[in-house]
Amino acid sequence: MYVIVVGGGDVGHYLGKQLLDEGHEVLVIEKDARKCEHIEEELGDICLCGEASEIAILEKGGITRAEMVIAVTGEDEDNLAACQIAKQKFNVPRVIARINVPRNEKIFAKLGIECVVDAVYLVSEHIKAETMLFPLTRLFSIKDKGLEIVLVRVGKNSPAVGKPIGELSLPLGSVVSSVISHGEESQIPTVNTVLREGDQLICLVSTENIDLFQAIFRGS
């Protein structure tokens, strides 16, 4: 597949390499000549130096035959412009934008760019998971299905302590797929698995039920 990556910073560089490794044809558009040079030293002749929201640059980069445009610069307005032009002017079938300011997710959606990856949110959630200070962290969102894969911790004195999973009033459609107890192998639970304080659970839950779900495991 021909993929255009907009932005040759750390994310664009890494993503470009991964796409090449998978056998895709990749072009990285980056305005900073030094960054282009750095990428080309490692990955070969795959960079175009210029502003990816300029129509002439996109045309030079073969946008008309691109099947995907991924905009991952650190500037949300640049990612929006590149994605809008790719999608609305050149009919690129799939566009994905990185956003660096969480509030922009809604704005991008209203302006026609639905597929966004929120960098701040993702990093924060993963750090939250590592700290073990939060009852619930969101590991992955399946946005178009309204589902989330979450990591929850059974808090001290939470309603779930000492109960088998089958007796918890989990919101409909939730699945507990793995239970990790301290110092033990992780296990695939049954309805009879009894939860202990500090257990970590990997679960699938619908986005609208996250708060309900969290309340069951939150300690006091």
């Binding site: 929201s53 500037e75 949300d76 307005e77 640049d78 929006l80 412009a81 704005i107 209203k110 302006l111």
Partner: peptide, 16 residues
């Protein structure tokens, strides 16, 4: 001075 910023703000003004 920033085309992309102007475009984004203008669209927010219009669409939102």
């Amino acid at each position: 001075r920033d085309d992309e910023l102007n475009a984004m703000a203008a669209q927010i003004a219009k669409q939102i």
